[in-house]
Simulated assay, not measured.
Amino acid sequence: MKSLLTDLINLLFPTLCVGCDQTLHQADQFLCTACRLALPETNDHQSPDHNESHNKFAGKVPIRYVTSYARFVKGGVMQRAIHRIKYEGNKDAATGFGRWYGAILNEHSSLADDIDLLVGVPLHKQRLRQRGYNQADQLAIGLSETMQLPARTDVLVRTEFKSSQTKKNRLERWANVETVFGVADALAVKDKHIAIVDDVLTTGATIEACAAELLRAGCREVSVITLAVTQ
């Protein structure tokens, strides 16, 4: 009876792939097999201290490791997936991507042995009310489940509400976020290696601002883990 009810619910309200909107098979979660195979993975984790993602921070703020799951290609699977995560309420996909990437990092890198705490880039309270959740926190929670690392959603805070970064250049992005972050619990980061988690690494301005605050609060080292990275 339970199986029949599940089949009926799936028939009436099918679960759609966040990458292509096709109905998912029962074995799939939020991304179909074809879309997952089409993801342009970066392999950043093979050299997390020396890759294109890491180069975005060169000469700006000291970052130990940087690793991004896939390249953000305009019109591609990852762009569509992130749009659904951020603007269409697909919270579970954010957590699921975190679990996937955490499993990859566990299998092919030693990052979990070196990092003490995962922290998502925070949203302002106003934006959080609008969206209902913070996609960066959900990614961090997913990563924590497979990497067996603690994740905190209350360490970094956004103190000012600023306009979207989407259409700004690097200087505008930095000016927009330079003073908007703070550390709410300095003891939680003191002498620890913190990994900042976010959905997309673009110019790096937002993460730079977060890293600067963490280091100012006594953090030993900062690394970065993102779902996607722009070219």
Rank of each mutant, 00 (worst) to 15 (best):
G120N: 03
F30M: 03
A34I: 12
D198W: 07
T6W: 09
S144K: 11
K91S: 12
D21H: 11
E107M: 07
H124I: 02
R220F: 03
V222R: 10
L156M: 13
P150A: 06
V61R: 00
C210D: 12
L4A: 15
G19D: 04
S109L: 13
S223C: 11
I194Q: 06
E88W: 05
S53C: 10
H45E: 13
A94Q: 02
D199T: 07
D44E: 05
I9Q: 13
S68K: 04
A112K: 15
G75T: 06
M78S: 03
L8R: 09
G102A: 02
V155T: 10
T33I: 04
V183G: 03
G182L: 01
N134P: 09
S144T: 04
L111D: 10
A112G: 08
Q22T: 01
V177K: 06
Q130R: 14
A38E: 14
P122G: 02
N169E: 07
E160H: 14
P122R: 07
F161H: 15
S53T: 05
R170V: 02
G76F: 15
R80A: 14
H83D: 06
G218M: 11
M1S: 05
Q165T: 04
R152Y: 02
A186C: 04
Q148G: 01
G218Q: 14
Q22K: 14
R99N: 06
E208S: 08
K86A: 01
S144D: 00
K56N: 03
L105V: 04
L11Q: 11
G96I: 00
F72L: 14
R152E: 02
L227A: 05
V229Q: 09
K91M: 11
Y101R: 06
V177L: 08
A228W: 13
E178A: 11
T159N: 10
L12D: 04
D113Y: 14
V200D: 13
G75M: 09
D116S: 12
R84I: 01
L16S: 12
Q148A: 04
Y87H: 05
I225D: 10
Q29G: 04
T159Q: 12
I104C: 10
Y87W: 09
L24R: 14
P48S: 02
H124G: 05
F72W: 15
T202E: 08
S110I: 12
Y69A: 02
G59K: 06
I115A: 01
A184F: 00
G218V: 08
V229F: 03
T206H: 07
G75C: 11
L118V: 01
A94S: 07
T166R: 10
I225A: 10
R99V: 00
T23S: 13
T230F: 14
S163K: 15
N106G: 09
V119G: 03
D7F: 08
S164M: 01
T159C: 05
H193I: 00
A81Y: 10
D137R: 00
I104M: 14
Y133T: 05
V73M: 02
T146I: 02
T179M: 03
A175F: 00
L105T: 08
F72S: 06
S3R: 15
L24S: 07
E107S: 13
D21P: 00
Y133G: 06
L4M: 15
Q79W: 09
M78A: 09
T226E: 15
Q165M: 08
K192I: 00
Q138E: 15
R127I: 02
